[in-house]
Design a protein around this nucleic acid. Structure first.
Lengths: 188, 188
DNA sequence: AGTCTTTACTGGTCAGACCAATTAACTATT
DNA sequence: AATAGTTAATTGGTCTGACCAGTAAAGACT
């Protein structure tokens, strides 16, 4: 009656079970491919298909000669991957810039920054050894970190990477200074 | 000199190339596993590892006896899976919700909507056959389309898929009505 | 004790076989 | 000629077993 799920999907479930029930944690070593194939009564090739799939998702990491390890899969590796497919046919620069600005404007709307963060920002702006791009990146990095949303940061970084090759619409230096003033005021 | 990427990663690149350069579209049939293995000079098992991986991502679909087909990968199937791994963590749920709201708030800030779009919105709100989730989705879809940024729309959809698996913080009906009023005013 | 060599284990890849499901080609029947 | 039924070819699904390539642990030597 159909719905006989493929072997590699069963293996997938088993890995999930290991994590959920046997308490495997990031960094832990999973059973070897050969061992899993015995454990699950499946061919090693099938086990590998499953492992390769979740490796692509960034859930595990394999090191030849060592073994297969659980990764800290909260690093949103999948987002990158999916985005690489999404972006390949809609790499329209304007959309990307607009999207980037949406995120940047959002983090700029944070209520207040710590003294330390303000100092950081001033240093970045004062550092003449930095390129325009570097400055932009570091400047907003402070805000993204202040905002403390890893996902947003991750997406923004992705956009940065993608838009690095195309010419950036450059922000004038004044732009950053204006931003700084805003927060300066809230403290003084 | 290291960096010899694994075979299955090469296959992955090849699939991407097919899509990008040879213009494969959703629904198209990919070369068979055996043909790919010849084409890429790799063992069929290696080809399969790659195919299984991107199948898990929802990019392709395989039907025994028929072949392997490109899917409309705008609806990422992988999110379900990843969600089951990742979304236990409540912190990630919060981040996701926050990120989604950033995008939603942005498209809500659009200056004006057409009469037709306003009508659409009213119909969606009035349609009692829609679930809460459906309503939310369609409501914002109008705004995203009005805003005409494919990239933002796709990212938002991705987030929607992700957050569908976890309990949504429900918006009260009043929320949508308030939004509507805002635009009603600009027209009348 | 410290170093070197060997061994065992792990992932990476390959080749070939067979099954299962679908499709296409062909044949026989009407 | 049109249809139905059978056969062959193709495709994915799975398995087995082999060999290579790194790593780490055990053992031997100094």
């Amino acid at each position: 009656m159909s719905e006989r799920s493929k072997v590699y999907q069963q293996v997938l479930s088993e890995i999930q079970r290991l994590i959920k029930e046997d308490g495997y944690l990031p960094g832990d070593k999973l059973p070897s491919e050969r061992q899993l194939s015995v454990q699950l009564d499946a061919a090693r090739s099938s086990v590998r298909e499953a492992l390769r799939a979740i490796e692509l998702l960034g859930i595990i990491e394999t090191r030849q000669g060592e073994g297969t390890y659980l990764r800290d899969y909260q690093t949103y590796h999948a987002v990158e991957l999916l985005a690489s497919f999404v972006l390949q046919d809609s790499r329209i620069q304007e959309e990307l810039q607009q999207a980037k600005k949406v995120l940047e404007n959002y983090v700029l709307s944070i209520d207040s920054l710590s003294d330390q963060q303000l100092t950081q920002l001033r240093e970045i702006l004062a550092d003449s050894s930095l390129s325009k791009e570097e400055k932009h990146h570091r400047f907003f990095l402070v805000f993204f970190k202040a905002n403390d949303n890893q996902l947003l940061l991750r997406i923004w970084r992705l956009m940065q990477d993608f838009s690095e090759n195309i010419e950036q619409d450059v922000y004038p230096d004044q732009y950053y200074c204006d931003m700084l003033k805003k927060y300066k005021k809230t403290i003084e």
